[in-house]
């Protein structure tokens, strides 16, 4: 289980994240919302061990993150960055197979897992293609398959951090990818996902964290967090909250 206590991060002499207390829950999806520059990616960087905290701790299973060995940590914590800079022509399945590098499960098992992860990310039809020949959205799905493969099949004690996994996807895939993420979480893994679309967050997250200027403004179930006052305060948006006619989750309409 991944846990942050009184976490603060300083970058370039400025405090960009302050006072974050957070515990990811097994089997649950936590959404992180906030305007540009609110510290969402910084939070993800701190939770994944990329950024050293100025104050506070990040613990994985009770042990500080920097005390973990690289490969042990990689077997229970996977991270999908916002964008990737891969500029070599690996085949799609080779990219996904890199998710298996921290493991020693053997070639055959790895191949099965790669196929299953590609299926989950709705990218199975890309098998055999060169990564460089893919569109931005297709690449994003391949990388999602890679981090899913890293933790496959997903179990309690594992953590998945996703930085805007839907930013380049068409509407259908925005939904199918978040559905896949939920299905993955239902195997027991804890998931944190940074999102920009309030309605996607309302539909697919169990809890939401609202960040503003590096400080947490609200943390709770979508019904509690997605109200007109906090959204006005954080995003400066005037919104109406309705109910989804079939699903019942909050539906945010800008006035």
């Amino acid at each position: 289980m991944l846990q942050a206590e009184a976490l603060s991060i300083r970058r370039g002499g400025r405090t960009v994240l302050e006072g974050v207390d957070l515990a990811l829950q097994p089997g649950r999806v936590l959404g992180v919302l906030g305007p540009n520059g609110a510290g969402k990616s910084t939070l993800l960087g701190a939770l994944s061990g990329e950024l050293a905290p100025a104050q506070g701790h990040v613990r994985l299973h009770g042990q500080p993150l920097d005390e973990w060995s690289g490969s042990e940590r990689a077997r229970c914590l996977a991270v999908l960055p916002q964008s990737s800079t891969l500029s070599f022509g690996f085949r799609v399945e080779d990219v996904v197979a890199m998710g298996r590098l921290p493991h020693a499960t053997g070639l055959l098992r790895d191949r099965e897992i790669v196929e299953a992860a590609l299926q989950a990310a709705d990218a199975a039809h890309l098998h055999g293609r060169s990564y460089l020949a893919l569109s931005g959205g297709e690449r994003q799905r391949v990388h999602l398959a890679r981090v899913l493969a890293q933790l496959w099949p997903g179990a309690e004690g594992q953590t998945l951090l996703l930085d805007e996994p839907t930013s380049m996807l068409d509407p259908l895939h925005q939904h199918s990818i978040l559905q896949a993420t939920r299905a993955f979480a239902s195997q027991g893994a804890a998931v944190l996902v940074i999102l920009h679309d309030l309605n996607l967050a309302a539909r697919y997250c169990d809890r939401l964290l609202l960040l503003q200027d590096g400080r947490p403004q609200a943390l709770g179930p979508p019904d509690e967090v997605l109200r007109p006052e906090p959204l006005k305060q954080v995003f400066g948006l005037d919104v109406l909250i309705q109910r989804h006619p079939e699903q019942g989750h909050p539906l945010i309409v800008v006035r």
Partner: peptide, 13 residues
């Protein structure tokens, strides 16, 4: 080749 942070997240020093 994936990127430095990606390699780190995959457990490499």
């Amino acid at each position: 080749l994936l990127g430095e942070s990606e390699a780190r997240h995959l457990g490499f020093e």
